[in-house]
């Protein structure tokens, strides 16, 4: 039934213009907001190069769960217990959080909307993707993340799925 395809294409295009685009625009506008200020000037490079930490040592569940998770204060505490390890002012700020047993209010940059099921486990373990594919060269970052390397957009998801020959059926991701 190839004739049916034309209206479908047309519908799809109309849809993208009418509904999907605003979603992209709004979400792009949000995530690339330069005003994002993280509570602590976290330095990924120091932790990876100097302290020799692996991604999954702080983002604990990256290989086992849907969400990789931002580290809780308990994870920071394993190294930063009492005495500072550096002369950084930022570490003092961290130690304050640790001593007060308060979680650090990180601003979450990579947010997937609730109608999407995104599983780190599936992408990292099953899909064998490198973290850098979406998050960039984190090991070189000296400042905390304030904008997304790869914007969380359906277009970006689908491009990659297409190139890797992974299903783009709505129900593969949308719930």
């Amino acid at each position: 039934m190839p004739m049916l395809n034309w209206p479908r294409v047309a519908r799809f295009t109309v849809n993208i213009i009418l509904f999907v685009m605003p979603v992209f625009m709004v979400s792009c506008a949000f995530v690339s907001d330069d005003d994002v200020k993280q509570p602590i000037a976290y330095n990924h490079r120091v932790h990876i190069e100097n302290a020799g930490l692996k991604c999954q040592e702080c983002h604990l569940y990256v290989e086992t769960m849907a969400s990789a998770t931002l580290p809780s204060i308990e994870i920071c505490r394993t190294c930063h217990e009492t005495a500072p390890l550096s002369e950084s002012q930022e570490e003092l700020a961290l130690l304050k959080y640790v001593s007060e047993e308060k979680e650090i209010p990180w601003v979450n940059i990579y947010q997937v909307p609730d109608h999407v099921y995104f599983s780190h486990r599936r992408h990292v373990v099953g899909g064998e993707l490198e973290c850098s594919a979406c998050h960039g060269m984190v090991s070189a970052m000296t400042a905390p993340v304030t904008s997304a390397f790869l914007e969380v957009t359906m277009e970006n998801c689908m491009d990659c799925h297409r190139s890797k020959n992974v299903s783009n059926d709505c129900l593969s991701c949308h719930r």
Partner: peptide, 22 residues
């Protein structure tokens, strides 16, 4: 459906795409 917000996928599930639905 005028906007392709409901379709049948390969596994026979009839899906509803809420964000397309008008």
């Amino acid at each position: 459906c005028p906007v392709g917000a409901t379709y049948r996928n390969e596994e026979g599930l009839v899906a509803q795409v809420y964000h397309r639905c008008i």
